[in-house]
Design a protein around this nucleic acid. Structure first.
Length: 316
DNA sequence: AAGCGCATCAACCGCGGTATA
DNA sequence: CTATACCGCGGTTGATGCGCT
């Protein structure tokens, strides 16, 4: 009796097993992604409702780009939206197909750490002989401390605005940094879907592109933000001349070989990653390279029954 | 080969908002 | 109206993998 009660009260934590995933998937299949706490009360799993929901949202939900690195486009979107919304990761994630708030949060956190480390390195070791990645020495950066991860309310960027141009020295040469909006206007041709419509309100990304999902990422219409809003210090820090090789090495988590100067995009960035570069990693499958198409094949067809039909801009 | 540091990811915790009894 | 349960979000942490020395 007592033992049974204890067993019922037992709450499992830590990594999820495949069997648990299966139970959770069955629940969602039957009842939809809700009633999380009933999973435990029914004795299906010794997990809290919270834990179940998190597992579903972050790993089991269909259309997730698990294991896919953030593309440069996605990175750009995150930077812009973070500047606008602050650390409202769920909101930011809603603008990115297949990304969860956790993904965005982790991505941003890594980015901030990387930045902090670079800034710290540049502050403490002015001239490193054996630097694999060239680190710019900032002259005009007001603060070298790591940007803080702070919450901020809507419309309030988490850091103060920074005036441009910034300057730093590289190879005894003073290099000016311009704001990304200016840079984008002057140098980068964005995909049509990114720039063709400007709306007052941002609309969350809701277009599930099924088979094309991992090959082509469509972006919400992002209005041009005023300079003082668009790129606060923590974002602006990441904006040295993006056509510099060191920028690519330092800030772009992409294989440098993918950059082909002179391709359809003036700066040569790969706006769309090749499908082969997507690594789907869930549980035992971590490390396997699969196309996203085959990823969807793993889901039972009726799994999508409980989901709202996607709003596709192409289907009117 | 071992040790170390760093990056990434998955999951937990705490808090606040909302729904319901 | 209030108490409680549930849900969702953001912050944090621990595990793991990888590259470098």
């Amino acid at each position: 009796m007592h033992g049974k009660k204890e067993q019922e009260d037992y709450i499992r934590k830590g990594p999820w097993k495949a069997e648990e995933d299966e139970v959770l998937l069955n629940h969602v299949k039957k009842y939809g992604p809700r009633d999380w706490s009933s999973i435990r009360s029914k004795g299906l799993l010794h997990r809290t409702g919270k834990s179940c929901r998190l597992r579903w949202v972050n790993k089991l939900r269909p259309n997730l780009k698990n294991g896919c690195k953030f593309s440069l486009e996605e990175e750009k979107v995150v930077i812009e939206l973070q500047a606008q919304f602050g650390n409202r990761w769920a909101k930011i994630a809603s603008y990115l197909s297949g990304r969860t708030d956790n993904d965005v949060k982790n991505f941003w956190s890594s980015r901030q750490k990387r930045l902090a480390r670079i800034l710290h390195t540049s502050a403490t070791t002015p001239k490193s002989k054996k630097n694999k990645t060239k680190v710019p020495t900032f002259l005009d950066v007001p603060t070298l401390e790591a940007p803080k991860l702070s919450s901020s309310s809507e419309g309030e960027p988490s850091s103060k605005p920074q005036s441009y141009p910034l300057e730093y020295i590289e190879n005894s040469e003073v290099i000016k940094m311009v704001s990304l909006p200016d840079l984008m206007k002057s140098q980068i041709e964005l995909p049509t879907s990114y720039t063709s419509h400007v709306e007052q309100e941002l609309t969350p990304f809701e277009s599930y592109k099924s088979t094309e999902q991992c090959q082509q990422i469509s972006f919400p219409q992002i209005p041009e933000l005023p300079n003082h809003l668009a790129f606060p210090m923590e974002s602006q820090d990441l904006l040295p001349r993006i056509d510099e090789p060191c920028f690519i090495e330092d800030f772009c988590p992409l294989d440098a070989s993918e950059f082909e100067i002179g391709s359809q995009h003036p700066i040569g960035f790969p706006f769309f990653e090749s499908p082969a570069s997507y690594r789907i990693g869930t549980g035992d499958a971590i490390g396997n390279t699969k196309s996203c198409d085959s990823f969807f094949d793993d889901f039972p067809v009726d799994m999508f029954d409980h989901m709202d039909p996607p709003a596709s801009p192409s289907n009117h």
